[in-house]
Design a protein around this nucleic acid. Structure first.
Length: 172
DNA sequence: TCTCCGATTCACT
DNA sequence: GTGAATCGGAGAA
């Protein structure tokens, strides 16, 4: 097991997203217990030109975190109910993020954040420099398949049809 | 200030 | 298959 370097996250989101599939999220709770879950599905959101990306309208209070250095955690509330976990990629002033869509045993982005106890207090946390959460890799090699992104029909055909969703076929 | 709406999930029909 | 739950951000006024 080894922790991923900050440099891992500073590449283009379309490289980081498929690379994150098959990696392991390690959540350390306050009482010291750890929960480890392998990532089985990710999605890429890339820059201001991507209409499905929250940053497509420019830098705002909400999207500021996506303009930060890769490896920063972006958590936000959707439908007033669920927290979604994202990891910022690329360098500064380059708004990209990977959505962690599924992990093993938890099929859905809202479910995995509930399982890991993630809420907005994780926003701006560094995934490579946090006591509460980090990502490890072992010798596992996933079998990645591509698919269209989900739940973003509002972004229009061009962006909704981008195959920027990465699934580990072995775990499905 | 006020209104609209979403990177979802779950309970019903 | 359909619709409700529920809240913070963004844009309009």
């Amino acid at each position: 097991m080894k922790k991923l370097n900050p440099e891992f996250y500073r590449r283009d989101v379309l490289e980081v997203a498929p690379d994150l599939a098959g990696k392991i999220i390690v959540r350390t709770f306050d009482d010291g217990t750890q929960v480890k879950l392998r990532i089985t599905e990710t999605e890429a959101y890339r820059g201001e030109e991507d209409k499905a990306c929250h940053a497509h309208k420019g830098r705002t209070k909400r999207t500021d975190v996506m303009y930060r250095q890769g490896g920063t955690i972006y958590v936000y509330l959707i439908y007033g109910i669920h927290w979604l976990l994202n990891i910022v990629t690329g360098g500064e002033n380059n708004p990209q993020a990977v959505l962690i869509r599924c992990v093993e045993n938890y099929d859905g982005p809202g479910k995995l954040t509930k399982a890991l106890g993630i809420d907005k207090s994780f926003n701006y946390e560094k995934i490579y420099d946090s006591d509460r959460i980090h990502i490890e890799q072992d010798n596992y090699t996933p079998e990645i398949i591509n698919a269209k992104r989900v739940g973003i029909d509002y972004a229009g055909k061009i962006w909704a049809n981008k195959s920027w969703r990465f699934i580990d076929k072995k775990k499905k």
